[in-house]
C-alpha cells in the first residue's frame, strides 16, 4: 500500500482492516494524530484527505486514495500560533484534531463567522472545554 502523507510518499505494509490512524501512529510514528475513541465519535483523530477533514480511526488505510495531511504537516500553519495565543489548549489531547478541522475550515472560508465555526468544529470534542478559546483562535487566526 502506498500513502502520500504531508507530501511524502510512504510504502506501508498493513493488514486490510487497519485504520489510517493506526498506520499513522504505529507504522509511521506520526503520533500527533491522537486516538481518543477509535470509533468515529470524538474527532481527536481528524486528518485531511485532499483537504477534507475525516476521521482516521474509522478510515481503512487501504481505501485512502488522496493525499493525507496530518497535524505534522500543519506545524507551521498560522493557526498553531493562534491557538497558542488564545490559550485554546488545556490538556491538548484533542488539540491536534481541532487544528486539522480548523485548517480545513479557514482554507474554505478565510474569515468564518461564529456560526460557521460552530458548525464546522462541532465534531471535535474537547473535554477540557477550550471551545471559547478555539473560537477566538479561529476568528483571529491571521492576526
Amino acid at each position: 500500500m502506498k500513502l502520500v502523507i504531508n507530501g511524502d510518499e510512504h510504502e506501508v505494509d498493513a493488514p486490510v482492516g487497519a485504520s489510517l490512524a493506526a498506520v499513522l501512529r504505529e507504522r509511521l510514528g506520526l503520533t500527533g494524530t491522537k486516538i481518543a475513541c477509535n470509533e468515529g465519535h470524538c474527532g481527536a483523530c481528524t486528518v485531511m484527505i485532499d483537504g477534507v477533514p475525516v476521521l482516521s480511526c474509522i478510515t481503512l488505510a487501504h481505501s485512502v486514495e488522496g493525499e493525507v495531511t496530518t497535524i505534522e504537516g500543519l506545524r507551521d500553519h498560522p493557526l498553531v500560533d493562534a491557538f497558542v495565543r488564545a490559550d485554546a489548549v488545556q490538556c491538548g489531547f484533542c488539540t491536534p484534531g481541532q487544528v486539522v478541522s480548523a485548517a480545513a475550515l479557514v482554507a474554505a472560508r478565510p474569515t468564518p463567522t461564529e456560526e460557521e465555526i460552530r458548525h464546522a468544529m462541532a465534531g471535535n470534542i474537547c473535554r477540557c472545554g477550550t471551545y471559547p478559546k478555539i473560537e477566538e483562535a479561529i476568528l483571529h487566526w491571521r492576526d
Binding site: E26, T31, G32, K34, R75, V80, V84, V89, F93
Partner: peptide, 21 residues
C-alpha cells in the same frame, strides 16, 4: 501568560502516555 507547553501540545509533539512506544 501564554502556556509554556502550548506549542508542543498544539503541534502534536507533546508525548503523552498514549504515545509511548
Amino acid at each position: 501568560a501564554v502556556r509554556k507547553d502550548a506549542l508542543e501540545r498544539v503541534r502534536g509533539e507533546a508525548r503523552y502516555t498514549a504515545d509511548i512506544r
